[in-house]
């Protein structure tokens, strides 16, 4: 199972900062994702795409997560060499992150 199976996603940019919105599909998905969407796990999955720190803001009122990734767009939309200058695909790349299946979750 992947983040994709539990959520809808959308990403955007500001300077060299990408943000990924993860919307849990229901309350159970929100609880599960809260244990999975940790900055270290996200950093490991995104690899070289994200050079700076990652902050995750859980939003229980919306059953959503705001994930802010710094140094994540190769310098920012106007100067990056990436095809996806504005990081629109960062959300789908993140949504491919596998969940820790089989591990006991509390």
């Amino acid at each position: 199972m992947r983040v994709h199976d539990l959520s809808y996603v959308r990403s955007g940019d500001k300077g060299d900062i990408a943000n990924v919105v993860v919307l849990a599909r229901d309350a159970d998905a929100y609880s599960r994702l809260a244990q999975e969407l940790l900055p270290e796990a996200i950093a490991a999955h995104m690899g070289e795409l994200v050079q700076g720190p990652i902050t995750v803001y859980p939003m229980p009122n919306l059953e959503a997560f705001q994930i802010v990734m710094y140094g994540a767009l190769g310098g920012g939309a106007t100067r990056t060499l990436r095809f996806d200058a504005t990081g629109k695909s960062m959300c789908t790349i993140l949504s491919r992150m596998p969940l820790r299946e089989g591990e006991a979750l509390q």
Binding site: G12, N19, L23, L62
Partner: peptide, 16 residues
């Protein structure tokens, strides 16, 4: 609710 939530958080950093 999904199309609105998608945009509510779009390009926001600290939501608080």
């Amino acid at each position: 609710r999904w199309t609105v939530k998608e945009h509510l958080l779009y390009e926001v950093h600290d939501p608080h």
